[in-house]
Design a protein around this nucleic acid. Structure first.
Length: 586
RNA sequence: GCCAAUGUGGCUCAGGGGUAGAGCAAUUCACUCGUAAUGAAUAGGCCGUGGGUUCGAUUCCCACCAUUGGCUCCA
């Protein structure tokens, strides 16, 4: 066992744990507040917790807080840390605590204290001239904070409520070692290099234009990828017995009134009017799907009836929330509605779970499952909710997957299972969901003829696997950092003639490969081979094909793989058939 | 929607009250080339949009639009 020799080593060891980091960052947040109070005594402190990566503190400065102020605060923090102040802990009564904050005019702190029990003993942490009440824990001395970086300034509502005043939130991170900060900043850079908006532009996949905020334009390569994802989706869903429909992008107001969207979702819908009739562009596919179901009578013999729709939906998301393909105003959902009898619910849910499992495995995604239960403002009877939650539970448990319960986070019309995928740099994204819905079948008065010859109401579930295909593509871009697997690459191979003399041969090779369904591109530029290779590598094309004198003579090609790091980039000379094989294996 | 920042050729960015600059990309010419950048030349911008201040604005001020980082929201 390693023997720890001094405080700093103990601290560094503690920093390895989640709790250790939390204490370290929480203390850093206090130092941040201390620095702010020294520079701007009039500033009011709100709250300042440790977060997953670092810490933040909310202040009311009473003036616009800029990047320059941020740098000044960071410098002040570094100064304070050098004072090597120890943290003192003591308890005071509620009245004493209140008096202390009142004296300093800390109105947010006062509000927090007012809400505490009258006989509460309030713990204070104090370092030098700065003290505040806090549950802790903290590190013993601020001198352990060897590296500090204040990362950004942001607005944040007091207590997270948009009706409250907006405070200035300062985000920062700190470490017990300077090298750890450097490493962290490198990681941030890596994440930025993967940003799907940056790669989307560089790889010519998609773009967002000023003329359509949140409305993505797909370029040929991006649409190629989207279509590949759709082809894969269709193949698997056909195999699983899904039918596919398409419903109009715009429908009359009366439909949306019936579905409840006109009342509950109006502010997110784009509307228009034609011949004095109101229309809405669909924010969801379900109501259209209901009309398709109702267009004929159904029998229990058709059940479970799985109806998919790759529907384009539009939602008027608030301007500040838009984020590339991840949060857009227009996207394609891979929806499906499954109509069934009560006794089919569990096995249908398991079927969807297997499908999701297969899909995510295709991309190497690990995922976690969350079960969201009844929220406060919900509709439906207790029995319905109980049945629905129990079916979801027993379905998940039957499959043997672990899951977390997210109490009260279900949709107002039913509980749901959410699938959170984890990408290659550890970030999680909510994609798939399975939701039971009692509301729409009722609102649309859906029925089927049962074995007993009577009419019954079907049970319906909504489900998506990709969620939004566009968003999923964005996640894939970041997950693979643009180095897509061969089957997903918009260009699988790029042909580089050694010089113009071999251009004709390169062209004939290109059409030969295209005929064999290899997505191939030809570099016609009059440049040296080294230049073309560099260009092709920056495009992250999986295979680079070089053709010159030798290849022309042998009717062959020299293939080089994108994976140069492992020293296996040169795959040597091969004929068309072997290359086509190689590509189809990838 | 709210807080803060940003907006300069296709891209990445510099500049700055007197009418704009680099690198890459593009085009042309020469070279016809064997595994990460051949050389030279040319062209390309109403400095996000609209107002204002000024003899003069891309630069300063205001409004708007879009983007970025957050908050809120995310049926």
């Amino acid at each position: 066992m390693k023997i720890l020799r001094n405080d700093q080593q103990v601290l560094e060891a503690a920093f390895e744990s989640k709790e250790g980091k939390k204490a370290f960052w929480h203390t850093s947040a206090h130092v941040l507040a201390q620095a702010v109070k020294r520079l701007y005594p009039e500033a009011k402190c709100a709250i300042g917790p440790a977060i997953e990566n670092g810490f933040y503190y909310d202040f009311d400065f009473g003036f616009p807080f800029s990047e320059e102020h941020l740098r000044a605060v960071e410098e002040k923090m570094k100064e304070i840390v050098k004072e090597s102040l120890s943290l003192q802990v003591y308890e005071v009564s509620k009245d004493e605590a209140y008096a202390y904050m009142e004296e300093r005019n800390e109105s947010f702190k006062m509000e927090l204290i007012r809400e505490m029990a009258d006989d509460a003993h309030i713990t204070f942490y104090k370092q030098g001239d700065y003290a505040e009440f806090c549950a802790g824990p903290h590190i013993g001395n601020i001198s352990h904070i060897k590296a500090i970086k204040l990362l950004s300034v942001a607005g944040a509502y007091w207590r997270g409520d948009e009706h409250n005043p907006m405070l200035t939130r300062i985000y920062g991170i700190s470490f017990p070692k300077a090298s750890m900060l450097e490493e962290y900043l490198l990681q941030l850079e890596e994440a930025r290099a993967r940003d799907h908006r940056k790669l989307g532009k560089e790889l010519e996949l998609f773009a967002l234009m000023d003329e359509g905020p949140g409305l993505p334009f797909y370029f040929p390569k991006g649409l190629m990828m989207k279509n590949i994802l759709i082809d894969y989706w269709r193949k698997i869903h056909r195999r699983e017995g899904y039918q596919e429909i398409s419903t109009p992008i715009m429908l009359m107001r009366t439909l949306w009134e019936k579905s409840g969207h006109w009342d509950h979702y109006r502010e997110n819908m784009y509307t228009t009017s034609v011949d004095d009739t109101d229309y809405a562009i669909k924010p969801m596919n379900c109501p259209g799907g209901m009309l398709v179901y109702k267009s004929k009578q159904h029998s229990y013999r058709e059940f479970p009836m799985r109806v998919g729709e790759l529907g384009i939906v539009h939602r008027a998301e608030k301007s500040g929330t838009l984020h590339g393909l991840m949060r857009a105003r227009c996207f394609t959902q891979d929806d499906a509605h499954i109509f069934m009898r009560e006794d089919q619910v569990e096995s249908e849910i398991q079927g969807v779970m297997r499908l999701i499992d297969e899909f995510y495995a295709r991309f190497g995604f690990k995922y976690e499952i969350e079960l969201s239960t009844r929220p406060e403002n919900s509709i439906g009877s207790d029995e319905e909710w109980e049945l629905a939650i129990n079916s979801l539970k027993s379905a998940v448990e039957g499959v043997g997957k672990p899951y977390a319960i997210n109490e009260g986070d279900g949709a107002f019309y039913g509980p749901k299972l959410d699938f959170h995928i984890k990408d290659s740099i550890g970030r999680t994204w909510q994609c798939g969901t399975i939701q039971l819905d009692f509301q729409l079948p009722q609102r649309f008065d859906l029925d089927y003829i049962g074995q007993d010859g009577e009419k019954h109401r079907p049970i319906m579930l909504h489900r998506v696997v990709f969620g939004s295909i566009d968003r999923f593509l964005g996640i894939l871009i970041e997950h693979y950092a643009g180095k897509f697997p061969v089957w997903l690459s918009p260009v699988q191979a790029k042909i580089l003639p050694v010089s113009d003399k071999y251009l004709e041969y390169a062209k004939s090779l290109a059409s030969e490969l295209s005929e064999k369904d290899v997505r191939v591109e030809l570099d016609k530029s009059d440049e040296k081979l080294g230049y073309k290779i560099r260009a092709a590598r920056m495009e992250k094309v999986p295979y680079i094909i070089v053709v010159g004198e030798k290849e022309m003579k042998n009717h062959s090609m020299s293939v080089r793989s994108r994976d140069a790091e492992e020293g296996k980039q040169d795959l040597g000379e091969m004929d068309v058939a072997s290359f086509v094989n190689l590509v189809s294996e990838g």
